[in-house]
Amino acid sequence: KKVTINGVEIKFNNPEEAVKFALELAKRLNLRIEFHGDQIKIE
């Protein structure tokens, strides 16, 4: 399963991993996060 985070394609074994990764990243950098299907936007 491929997920695009800020235009960067990252391959994950499952979608939950991708979501956890994105949330952790957003929390660490104190950023806002948006989900659009397989696209995750962090700003």
Rank of each mutant, 00 (worst) to 15 (best):
E17K: 06
E16S: 11
Q39I: 14
E17R: 04
E24M: 08
I42R: 01
K11Q: 11
L31S: 02
T4G: 02
G37T: 05
E43W: 14
G7E: 02
K41Q: 06
E17P: 03
N6A: 10
L29T: 03
V19Y: 13
V3Y: 04
E24R: 04
L31I: 11
E24L: 08
K2L: 13
E9F: 08
F21L: 10
N14K: 07
E43C: 15
L31D: 00
I42Q: 00
G7N: 05
H36M: 13
I40T: 01
T4A: 04
N6E: 04
I5L: 07
E34N: 06
V3Q: 02
E16F: 11
H36R: 06
K2W: 12
E16Q: 10
G37H: 07
E24F: 06
L25E: 01
I5G: 04
G37D: 08
Q39R: 09
I5Y: 09
I5K: 02
E43R: 11
L23D: 04
N6K: 06
A18N: 03
N13H: 07
R28V: 09
V19T: 05
I5C: 15
E34R: 07
V19S: 03
E24V: 05
E34H: 08
A18D: 02
K27N: 07
G7S: 03
I40F: 02
G7V: 11
N30K: 09
L29W: 05
I10V: 05
K41F: 14
N30L: 09
V19C: 15
E43G: 12
L29C: 15
N13D: 12
F21I: 12
I42W: 00
K11R: 13
H36F: 13
L23R: 04
F35A: 02
I33R: 00
L29M: 07
F35I: 11
L23W: 08
E24H: 03
V19M: 14
N13W: 12
V19R: 09
E34G: 03
N30E: 05
L23K: 07
V3L: 07
P15T: 12
V3K: 02
K1I: 15
I5M: 04
N30W: 11
E34S: 11
I42Y: 00
E16I: 12
R28W: 12
N6G: 10
R32H: 09
E34L: 07
A26Q: 02
G37N: 09
I42S: 01
G7L: 11
A18F: 14
K20W: 15
N14T: 14
Q39N: 13
R32T: 11
E17Y: 11
E34V: 12
E16T: 08
